[in-house]
């Protein structure tokens, strides 16, 4: 792509990644969550692919693959935390400790340290979606550029 596109992409890729991380991190407080934030971050990866070339992201292909599996396994592990009650029961919500601050009914400013397993699951799903969509667009880009060693 032209130098204009590459310059703008250099500025926008960190913004996209940070905004994706913000959407994932505040998934239990504001609109959005793991899927949406992961898709935003994956669009930053797609921006790298279309403005530079697929060779730039080829070294992280193994990392994306590992991240996808890690996210999926972590999601199920956090679901198993509530197995004493039922599968997917929120075991650490309102119990104190990490993400365990209770919330009263009604409006509040929104505290990050709440919701139990929800932020952890948001991170797991967000990393999974980021890695999944990122590796899909990376595979398509590598295929389109005729890279032989995929």
């Amino acid at each position: 792509m032209s130098v204009v596109v590459r310059t703008i992409a250099r500025m926008l890729v960190p913004v996209g990644l940070v905004f994706g991380a913000y959407v994932i991190m505040h998934g239990h407080l504001t609109p959005g969550g793991g899927f949406q934030g992961g898709a935003v971050a994956a669009s930053a990866l797609a921006l790298i692919l279309v403005s530079f070339s697929a060779k730039e992201l080829k070294p992280v292909k193994g990392l994306l693959s590992a991240l996808e599996s890690t996210g999926g396994v972590a999601f199920v592990v956090f679901a198993f935390l509530g197995i004493g009650f039922t599968f997917f029961a929120n075991a650490i919500a309102g119990m104190g400790g990490l993400f365990g601050q209770p919330v009263d009914y009604g409006p509040n400013p929104g505290y990050l340290n709440t919701s139990g397993t929800l932020p952890l699951m948001n991170w797991a799903v967000g990393l999974k979606v980021l890695a999944g969509l990122g590796s899909v667009v990376l595979l398509f880009a590598l295929f389109g550029e005729g890279e032989d060693d995929r």
Binding site: G27, H28, L29, T30, P31, G33, G34, F88, A89, N90, A93, G94, G100, Q101, P102, V103, N108, G110, T114, S115, G116, T117, L118, M121, N122, V125
Partner: peptide, 14 residues
């Protein structure tokens, strides 16, 4: 129950 302000995330993940 879920201590989440975002009811949609509470439904989707809990």
């Amino acid at each position: 129950e879920v201590a989440a302000n975002n009811a949609v995330t509470a439904i989707v993940f809990d």
